[in-house]
Design a protein around this nucleic acid. Sequence first.
DNA 1: GCCAACGTTGGC
DNA 2: GCCAACGTTGGC
Length: 153
Amino acid sequence: MNYWLFKTEPGEFSIDDLRDVTKPEPWDGIRNYQARNILRDQVKLDDQVLIYHSSCKNIGVAGTAKVVKEAYPDPAQFDPENHYFDPKSDPDNPRWVCVDVVFESKFGNIVPLKVIKDTPKLADMTLVKRGRLSVQPVTKSEFQLIKKMSKAV
DNA sequence: GCCAACGTTGGC
DNA sequence: GCCAACGTTGGC
């Protein structure tokens, strides 16, 4: 069992949106090679995911999700109407992948980035050491501590 | 392959 | 809106 942190801008797609969908949600639009490699090679069925809200008023970890489908070609890359369309991606050799997730929990309280930064046990998180990466690994103890800090409902 | 210019992410 | 810290592009 592995643990991950996925970023999303709640203005685009939030933990509430994830909670309200009735089908597995494709985590699409990942257009960074390092994040792509993690999705493609390491994210496995039943892995646990922290859902992180970025670029918003209330920045921090907002809930959890679970992986229900491993990497497959991101359909958005072939759709010219889609914001994430990539004309350079070859359908015979897709450049980008996504995974499917389902809602697991919404935190009673968001665990703010500021609090994470101020927590010594979380100082090694990629989130703290290197901001910009939309899919990143989290250790089991980090995952469990953040969940505990949230008083998850 | 180098590197300057440009683009993006994302906190503040 | 600013800007630091990346990542990408493209000329040479």
